[in-house]
């Protein structure tokens, strides 16, 4: 879904690294605060923790302009359809950080109202446990995600049509 489809495969193998590097250092997160953890996400973007050092300060309110969704907080059953829909609206390539115990596994809320982990509805790349995790943990998660993005190959992405060899 992007530049890699337009290029011949020989060049693309070398380009992978460049594209990966660019993508990794300009992750635009989508503001998606659901509960307590959203506060720590906001703190991470404030002056003390300065998420801009990792190129991820451009919080976008619209899914169309974002690359990454930080699911910060409890996903309730009432909210779940919206989470799924917003994830689908983000254009490829896209990544998800499940921030906080609730987003990872439901946390302490094993009740009728909550989804037991956001991975029941959307794929997750990095899990950050904690109730809530410290802002540093979010930065660590972003660094981990950057590592993943840098090592990603175009052929890894299952949603891509195969580029014909030759």
């Amino acid at each position: 879904m992007g530049i890699e489809q337009k290029l011949p495969p020989v060049l693309a193998t070398n380009l992978e690294k460049v594209v990966g590097l660019c993508r990794a250092n300009s992750i635009w997160p989508m503001t998606f605060g659901l509960a307590c953890c959203a506060l720590e996400m906001m703190v991470a973007s404030s002056s003390d923790y300065d998420i801009a050092r990792f190129g991820a300060e451009a919080f976008r309110p619209s899914p169309r302009q974002a690359d990454m969704m930080i699911v910060a907080g409890t996903v309730t059953k009432k909210m779940a359809p919206m989470v799924e829909r917003i994830y689908n609206q983000i254009s490829d390539p896209k990544w998800v950080i499940a921030y906080g115990s609730c987003a990872c596994s439901g946390g302490i809320f094993n009740t009728y109202g909550t989804v037991q982990g956001v991975d029941e509805i959307i794929p997750v790349d990095v899990y950050v446990p904690g109730c809530p995790p410290r802002p540093e943990a979010l930065l660590a998660a972003i660094m981990k995600l950057q590592k993943k993005i840098k090592s990603e190959k175009f052929s890894d992405r299952p949603d891509l049509p195969k580029v014909a060899a030759g």
């Binding site: 059953k77 009432k78 909210m79 779940a80 359809p81 094993n110 009740t111 009728y112 109202g113």
Partner: peptide
Amino acid sequence: LLWDGYEGHPLRKDFPLKGIPQKTTYR
């Protein structure tokens, strides 16, 4: 708090903590 079409009333003592499967989801 819950959506239209939800079955049951959660704070009743005979409602299970983990809920009952719902036919409708929130849209």
